[in-house]
Simulated scan of single mutants.
Amino acid sequence: MSASLKLTADRSRLLSIAVASLFLSPFATQAADFGNSEQTAPEPSPPDPERFGPVRQALHDWHVVIGAGAIFQPKYEGSDEFEVSPFPFVSAEFFDRITIDPSGIEIKAFEKDAFRFDVNVGYDSGRDEDDADTLRGMGDIDFGVTVGGKATYTFGPANVFVSVDKTIGGSEGLLATAGAAISQPLSEHLILGAEASATFADDNYMEAYFGVDAVQSARSGHAQYKAGAGIKSVDLSASATYLINENWVVRGEQGVSFLVGDAADSPIVKEKVQSKTMLMLGYRF
């Protein structure tokens, strides 16, 4: 997974997604003669399972996964305090080309042999100064829309990737990530995965999330600090996916991020090693 699109240790808040259930309720209870108190309404006809067939088939063709889980992660990138955040999850793939999930929309733009290039639209949820005491007086970082691309080259169960994402609004920052990932089935039920990557951030991103200007310094009490462009973090993660049966799947992931360079030296960073744990249960159609 791309570090820019997945739930990153930069305190991205995942957005809630509502899933509506389709239902039909046949109802035929009106009496023909309201004056006849002994006339009873006809029994409702039993549900017809076949009427859900086209809907279920469409969900299967779209590779829909619906689930929910929880993330245990720092309150913000650099925090030494943690919080648990529940989240719903919906993912769907259309025409083997378009994928929609909580991180945004990914479109397969080009694929040839082992090479693939995707374009994506996502979001950066920003940061609230009320998230932690250390951020008091730092002001909020607004929500922003991200647009970018990702190039991937596959070698058997492994792949290497490079991604670039630009935020429109919010920090107005740019993130570039390079890394490698591997996914290997150990049995018909268990799949293990691992990923290693490094993320570069430009001046806008670094100043927004790690810098302290004169106004922020006066309000928060932190020393002024200018954070310049450079490598922001080195990230490692391991995952396990267990297929309970044909439909139900449970996935766990443990990630650790090492803040480096100007990000690590920021006065708002209380812990340079950031840990994130995720557990999710999903249903595949």
Rank of each mutant, 00 (worst) to 15 (best):
R127I: 06
S233W: 06
H222I: 07
L190Y: 10
L24P: 05
V273W: 04
Y225A: 04
I231V: 13
A263R: 00
R284F: 05
S197M: 13
F87K: 04
I98P: 01
S239M: 12
S16F: 15
A41W: 05
K226E: 13
L174I: 15
S163V: 03
G149Y: 10
D133N: 11
F72T: 01
A196Q: 09
P54V: 01
M280Y: 01
G67M: 06
G67C: 06
R51A: 05
F89R: 03
P54H: 04
V119I: 15
V234W: 08
D118Q: 10
K6N: 09
S21I: 04
A178G: 15
F115N: 13
S237T: 06
W62G: 06
S163N: 08
S45D: 03
D203N: 14
T241W: 04
H189V: 05
D213M: 05
T167L: 08
T99D: 15
A70I: 02
F155P: 14
E106F: 11
P88Y: 07
I268Q: 00
A41D: 03
K232Q: 09
S220C: 14
D33L: 07
S12Y: 13
V160W: 00
V90G: 02
D124G: 12
F52V: 02
S220E: 08
P26T: 07
S103P: 04
W248Y: 10
H60W: 02
D96L: 08
P42K: 06
V234T: 09
D113I: 06
A109L: 14
P26H: 08
P42S: 04
P46W: 04
P267H: 04
F52A: 10
V55H: 10
S4F: 14
T241N: 09
R11I: 05
I182G: 08
F87E: 03
T241R: 08
